[in-house]
Amino acid sequence: MTQCPGATPYPIPPAVQEAYGPADLGSMPLFAGGFINFGYWQGIDLDQPLTEHDRISSELAMYRHVLAALAPTEGLRALEVGCGRGIGSAVALEEYGFAHVTGMDIHPQQLERAQQANSGLLARHPEQLRFAHGAAESMPFGDGEFDRVHSVEAAQHFRDLDAFARETARVLRPGGRAAVASFFVPDADPARAARLAELLDSFATGLDVAHTIPLLTDSLERAGLTGIRVTPIGTSVWTGWDRWLAKTWKPDTWPRNFLRAYGEGILDYFTVTAERPEK
């Protein structure tokens, strides 16, 4: 793990510390295969009983969906913000032809798991893959160090989207591109946060933050990024995620309320892309 001298330490929110520390969210069967995302279920038959293979395929498909939005990728340098166990960073290196991939996470225990999970790949490609300790709001990298920045289902944990956007713009080279995929409130209605806390424990405890899409796009614009494009992908996420949850969670338990929140129009899943101008 690396940290640039002088990088500003950033506190780990207590709920994030717990979920990704001793509790190790990624070890739960709900997140099979080492990935930690709700899945991109397009092309998976949801009318048949879902298997662990289906679940892993959905998580891998989410990464492929995001990484495809960064094309071209061949020979470029990429940063994943909130890499968790680093399985997605490995996918970026092995499937998308990046010259170098850095996976960054705020949680030291997640980085230890990333080193272990990818020990073979790190041994084979010591100059092409690294894992670094840092926060989305205070990245330990030089200006313009990366051609591409991506984040998969981590932005709901970030406490300061303005700081994340500024740091993303800073570490991107001119002409570089960023892609963020996660679940957000689709509008600026201030009542949404309270309703999400009623429905979903992850919002009530502070693990997830009810960020809005307008807040994210405004933050990216203020940071000087352009060409911002917002793509809702909830139709490929929520039904599949709920059917996978149904294997272990009853309809009246809080995780099943993600689909309900989507149905009420207070939460959706999005891919957001932006670019740093050439000049």
Results as ranks from 00 to 15, higher is better:
Met104Leu: 15
Pro108Ser: 14
Pro126Gln: 12
Ser89Met: 06
Ile106Cys: 04
Leu122Cys: 09
Thr51Cys: 09
Leu70Gln: 03
Glu80Phe: 02
Arg124Trp: 02
Leu121Gly: 12
Cys83Gln: 06
Glu59Gln: 15
Ser58Gly: 14
Ala68Glu: 11
Gly84Cys: 07
Phe98Met: 09
Ala117Tyr: 10
Ala78Trp: 01
Arg85His: 13
Pro108Gln: 13
Leu129Pro: 01
Ala69Arg: 14
Ala123Tyr: 10
Ile87Asp: 03
Val66Gln: 04
Ala123Met: 11
Gly82Val: 03
Leu46Trp: 10
Pro72Cys: 10
Gly103Asp: 02
Ala78Asp: 01
Ala71Leu: 08
Ala114His: 02
Leu111Arg: 00
Ile87Val: 15
Glu59Val: 00
Tyr63His: 15
Asn118Met: 10
Ile56Arg: 15
Gly88Glu: 02
Leu50His: 08
His53Pro: 00
Asp105Val: 03
Glu74Cys: 07
His65Asn: 14
Ala123Val: 00
Val91Trp: 02
Gln128Val: 05
Gly39Pro: 06
Asp54Arg: 09
Pro49Lys: 13
Ala114Thr: 06
Gln48Cys: 13
Leu46Gln: 14
Ala68Ser: 14
Leu50Val: 06
Arg77Pro: 02
Arg130Gln: 15
Leu67Ile: 10
Val66His: 04
Gln116Trp: 12
Ala90Lys: 06
Glu112Cys: 11
Leu50Cys: 09
Asp47Ser: 15
Thr102His: 07
Glu74Phe: 00
Glu112Thr: 15
Tyr63Ser: 13
Tyr40Phe: 15
